[in-house]
Amino acid sequence: MNPFDELSIEEAVRLRERKLPVEEIVTVTAGPAKSQDILRTAMAMGADKGIHVQIDDKEPQLEPLGVAKLLKAVVEQQKSNLVILGKQAIDDDAAQTGQMLAGLLGWSQATQASKVVVEGDVVTVTKEVDGGVETLKAKLPMIITTDLRLNEPRYASLPNIMKAKKKPLEKKTLKDFEGLDLKQRLKTVKVTEPPPREGGVKVEDVDGMISKLKELGAL
């Protein structure tokens, strides 16, 4: 599982553990058969239900906007009022889905959360930004995307792993969500490798280092 997604599941479970009225924690994934493992892990961590939208590796892959549209449909079906997502994928690092989903639903959004406090229907989210933290306040329903310092995800315990096997896992396909316009809009223009690293130099002592840094214009 994408570590940001792990943080999201963990946060949802912790909200429930803080005795907040969390009715149901639904986890969603879209991908090949193997993606089911991720849902089982999520349910072993404490989610109640999994929805697997099956997309074969050979089919065209969803783009962030496609995922957002799909999630919007799921959110409407499930009548969710809080969606927690990882801040970005770890393959293409797109970091778009959460924001797009908020836009499509017309909900508030708080991205890169490092702390989430829910009081009634008011949610306070702290996020780390350059040079400090930013605090946002919004009302449910809303979208939160998670960042690394939000929490420390638990390891699923063996008894919970076994229980997760009995939790409901709904299998769907894209055909179950009619009217989604999922056509590919992005085109990979070019992929280039970063330039090879150049070897460094060794300096004799501190003075040597300082003069080298000066020489390179770093001081």
């Binding site: 390891y155 699923a156 315990s157 063996l158 008894p159 919970n160």
Partner: peptide, 8 residues
């Protein structure tokens, strides 16, 4: 132990 594996 805390992850329940001893009771496998």
């Amino acid at each position: 132990a805390s992850s329940g594996f001893l009771g496998i």
